[in-house]
Each structure stands twice: as C-alpha cells, then as structure tokens.
C-alpha cells in the first residue's frame, strides 16, 4: 500500500470513529460537528473535481450547494403542506428523491453556467462564476414563495429508508455513506481515461487539443459532475440544520469551499476531508477563544500557500506521483 493510501484510510477511519467515541462519552454535540465536517467534505469533493483535477477555479460553487439546499427545503415543505408544486408533484421527504432532484437541478444550471463561463479562463472564469452565483443568491433573496431573505425551515429532517434521521448518529452515518460513495467515484474518475484527459487539459490545454482531444467537452463534463456532487452535499447540509437560507448561496460559501481544498491539498483525493476537518476544528476551537478566529485562519491559509502547497495531505504523504 502506498503511503498516501494508508494516510487516506486512517483519515477516513478517524472520521468514522470520532462520533462513536463522542457518543460513548456523552458528547452529542461532537457528533453534529463531525457531521458538518462530513457534509462540507462532500461539497469539497465535488469542487475538487473541477478545481483540483481540472484546474477550474470556480468561485461560484455556493450556487450549486444552495440549489441542493433549496431542493431539500422546497420538496420537504411541499411534502409537509401537501400543496402541489410543478406538474402536480407533491414534493417528497425521501432523501434519495431529494438528492436526485438536487443533482438534476444543479446539473442543468451548471450546464448553462459552464457552457458560458468555460469560454473564459483565469481571472475571468473566477469572476464570471462568481457573478452567476450572485445572480442565484439575489434570486433566492427576492423570491418570497420560499422564505426570501428569511430562509426556509425544514420541520423534520427528510427520511432515509430504514433510518431514523432525527437521531444524530444515524444521520451522520447516512452522510458518511454518501461521502464514501463520492470519494470512491472521485478515486475512479481520477484514474480513468476521462480523469487522465481532464488532468492533461489542466496542464496543457493547447497541447491536448493538438493530439485530438477537445478541451471544452471534457471541462464542461467535469464542471457539471462537480456541481452535482456539491448539490447533494447542499441537500444534506439543509437537513443537518433543518433550515436553508440564501446564506448557503453567498460567495462566502464559495470561498470557504476553495479554502477547504487548499488547506487539504489541491487535487488530492482526500484533500476535502482533511481540509474540512481542519477548517471545522479551527472554527470551533479558535472560535471559542476569539471572535476574530478568521484572522488566524487567514494566517494558516497564507502559510499553506507559501510553505506547504500540498496542504495537509502534502505534508503527510509527500508530493503527488502520477503512475
């Protein structure tokens, strides 16, 4: 087993074991904290496909995270009130249905956003993805049907067959299962033909075109897959808080996801998990000491970018090697 694989396994087991230990010690709040880590990691697994593998610095992934959140909130509210929505569909409180809806909605929106913004690159791409996300943000604020600025409450967490999702531990296990599935998908993707083409497009776009692979369809596919995974995370995040508001769509959220990945180690398989864990622990621990914890987060981010480009995974496992 390669060193990075071993480290990845240890990280995953630690993530899985912590809530059980906390539960046994009666620290129920820690279970929620770890669930938050798991969901943010899932969102970042999505972004990491675009940002890490494809080099697409999307500053608009909050849009997809929020779309997932609103999919959960809206479907749940219709299921609750029995009021039909589109085409007489009465909403749903079943998580698999909600996830599917979240992924499809984000998929359609990201296809449109990607088709336009992928014509640009560099700073323009960053700005145009930000602009689209802000459009979605202001749309949510000004849409009174689903709470507008106040957001939308989810009275009961959406259900998963055979699981009581209102129990923190069981909800955590659902989230962990989804994260695991997404990580397996991400691992397969990066070693597949598509992954090879995507990573090559990041390294040298012109050269890849000159051997007959068109960069645009490769990038667009990666962008859409990335958005769909992030949207499922958004749906879970709404269920975790039993609340969705426009703040899930704000550019702070997009920034946070990028920060997670940089802290974890851009492009590395487990960067989202390592980064999310570090971020949430810092937020909780530093946030308990000082209200200005983000100042210290900034220092850590600066140190990472200057001295430890590979992030946490890079420090632990060394430089990335491609077979």
């Amino acid at each position: 087993m390669k060193r990075e694989d071993a480290i990845n396994l240890v990280l995953l087991l630690a993530l899985l074991a912590t809530p059980f230990i906390a539960q046994a010690m009666g620290e129920t709040f820690t279970v929620t904290l770890v669930t938050r880590i798991t969901i943010l990691a899932l969102a970042a697994v999505g972004l990491n496909i675009a940002l890490g593998l494809g080099g697409l610095v999307s500053f608009g992934h909050a849009a997809f995270f929020g779309i997932g959140g609103y999919a959960a909130g809206i479907l749940a509210s219709h299921a609750m009130s029995g009021e039909p929505m589109l085409f007489g569909f009465e909403g749903s409180n079943q998580m698999p249905v909600v996830w599917l809806a979240a992924a499809i909605a984000a998929g359609v929106v990201s296809l449109a956003i990607g088709a336009i913004s992928l014509r640009t690159s560099g700073v323009y791409f960053i700005m145009i993805t930000l602009a689209f996300a802000q459009m979605v943000y202001y749309f949510a604020i000004s849409w009174p049907a689903y709470g507008g600025e106040d957001g939308l409450s989810i009275v009961l967490r959406n259900a998963f067959p055979g699981v009581n999702t209102m129990r923190p531990m069981e909800f955590f296990l659902v989230c962990f299962g989804v994260l695991l599935a997404a990580l397996i998908f991400s691992a397969l993707l990066r070693s597949s033909r598509f992954g090879a083409a995507l990573q090559a497009v990041r390294q040298n776009e012109v050269r890849v075109a000159s051997i007959g692979i068109s960069p645009m369809p490769i990038r667009l596919t990666a962008f859409v897959l990335s958005a769909m995974i992030t949207a499922v995370a958004g749906a879970l995040y709404a269920d975790l808080n039993r609340f969705v508001s426009p703040s899930m769509l704000s550019w702070h959220m997009s920034g946070e996801l990028i920060v997670l990945i940089i802290l974890g180690g851009t492009g590395r398989l487990m960067a989202p998990v390592a980064g999310a864990a570090l971020f949430v622990v810092l937020e909780f621990w530093l946030g308990g000491i000082t209200e200005r914890w983000q100042f210290f987060l900034g220092l850590i981010l600066l140190a990472t970018v200057l001295f430890a480009r590979g992030g946490v995974i890079g420090l632990l496992a060394g430089k990335e090697r491609h077979g």
């Binding site: 397969l188 070693s191 597949s192 033909r193 890849v208 051997i211 596919t221």
Partner: peptide, 18 residues
C-alpha cells in the same frame, strides 16, 4: 493519453487506465 486520443474514447469514467 495519445493512444487514448487516437482511439477517440476519453469519456470513460471508471476503468483505471493503468
């Protein structure tokens, strides 16, 4: 990657290339 391009099949998502 060039062999892959020559075969015209970059949209395969699961099989590890190695």
């Amino acid at each position: 990657l060039a062999v892959q391009a020559g075969q015209g099949s970059s949209f395969r998502f699961f099989k590890p290339v190695m």
